[in-house]
Every structure is written in structure tokens, then in C-alpha cells.
Amino acid sequence: MNEYNFAYLDEQTKRMIRRAILKALAVPGYQVPFASREMPMPYGWGTGGVQVSAATLTPDDVFKVIDQGADDTTNAVSIRKFFEKTAGVATTEETGKATIIQTRHRIPEARLRADQILVYQVPIPEPLRFLEPRETETRKMHSLQEYGLMHVKLYEDISQHGAISTAYAYPVRVADRYVMDPSPIPKFDNPKLEMDAIQLFGAGREQRIYALPPHTRVVSLDFEDYPFEASKADHACNLCGAEDSYLDEVITDDAGNRMFVCSDTDYCRSRREAGHQGRLAQEGTA
């Protein structure tokens, strides 16, 4: 009935990816090259995450896909459908019920458990890339821990703007060794990178896999006089009232009025189901 192998990829490709994942876990934050395959979705649309998920899934898994924190964004829907079709796995929108969560640009608000795996889609895995476009150079910089350039860049921000002007994909130092790009998550999510779950990062077009084992020390780069600050919109969710979640800003009418809602749609839904209400909850659910 199913004309493709379980989880689409052939076994040899999965073995190659699995070997890369194991080395990535053994050297946290180091980008392991892997022979990324052409997937039936475009490069830049989650092919790295999809290949990592395909190599990690078992038929017993419950799979969740989010994009911008939401399960119902079109690309999340498309990737979820792909695995329903090719791996026959159960899918869910509930963070707590998922065993593998593939994500683009967010870490779920709910604390992840030890039996969960978070798979990130990564566009540009190299944190030094925008300072130095050459792979041959950045590879050398990592091998020698030459991270001064990154600190110079961040410090230039401070002298120019009075603050570090990186708001997402904020670089981190992993286990006191490698500087790593946490993928374009908002820096609000950075403190969550130290978690109980295994985190795997897949960059398909750039052919790299990297990983954070549970409880790995992850430090957002900063300066003593300018400590790292995980910021978000200074509002509560207008639907569920949450004050601790990352918010999307939505323009609600022609007059440019705004409302703020949780980017993590499952977190917002579960809070509302538990009876929490935001300022506009009545209208929102009407």
C-alpha cells in the first residue's frame, strides 16, 4: 500500500543520519556534516528537521509539528501530513502527548520531559556565518575556539545602540566549548535550551546536524555589564491571560489596533480550557 519505505528515507540514508546524530550528541554544539538528501519539500522549508525526524521516528511515536509555535501554520500542516502518510505515525497538537516535536522558530512553553525529543529546523547552522562567509574559515575558528569576532560584533551593537541588537538566533556557548546557533528562536526561548529532553538540530541545505543532550550547559553570550536578557512583549495574552508566554502581535482593525496572543497555540488552548481568561477572551472565543 505504501510505496515508500517507513518514514520515507531508505535504510542506508537513515543509518548515515543516525551516525551523524550520535556524533552530534557526543560533541554537543559541534556541527556534524551529513550527506543531506533531496527531500520532496524545498530546501529551507525544514528538510533538515524532516530528515532528523525521519531517522529518529519509530511507529510508536506521537508526532507534533509546530511553526512559529503554532500547529496550524501551513508548513507545519504540510510536514505533519508528510509523516502521517510516509510513517503512519500518530500525530497530536498537544505538547504533553507528543514524543517527538519538530519545530521551526520556537521552543514550546510547557516544560519538556525526559521522554520527549525536540527536533529543530535550522536554516543557517553556522553562528559565525554572518561574520565570516567562508566555511573553511569558520571551521578553523571553531577548532581554535576563536570566538573573539562574535564578541566584537555583540560589543559593537552595545556601543552603537546601547544594547545587543540580536533578537533571535541569539548565539550560545555549549558545554563551555562550541558557540552554537540555536536556530532562529526568539532570544526569549534561549533559557529553555537547558532542558530534560534531547534536542536535535537539522540543517538540510547546509548539510549539518548538531545536538544538545539533556541538561547540557548552554550559556547565551553576553557581557558582565550587559547581561543577557530574555525579552518579550510587555503584555499578557489577550486570550488566556498568560504573562509568561511569548506573544504574537496581531493587527485587528483598519485603525491599526493590536492584540497580543500566545505564539504557542497549544499552551494558549490548554490554559483557556483550564479556565484562564485574557482581556479579550469572550470576544475571541465568540
Binding site: 535504510e11 529518529t56 519509530t58
Partner: peptide, 11 residues
Amino acid sequence: VQAAHAFRAAM
């Protein structure tokens, strides 16, 4: 399927 389960244990 068996390789998938085995890999998860190894990972």
C-alpha cells in the same frame, strides 16, 4: 522498524 527502535535505544 527494528532499526528505528534500536537506534532510539542507542541514541
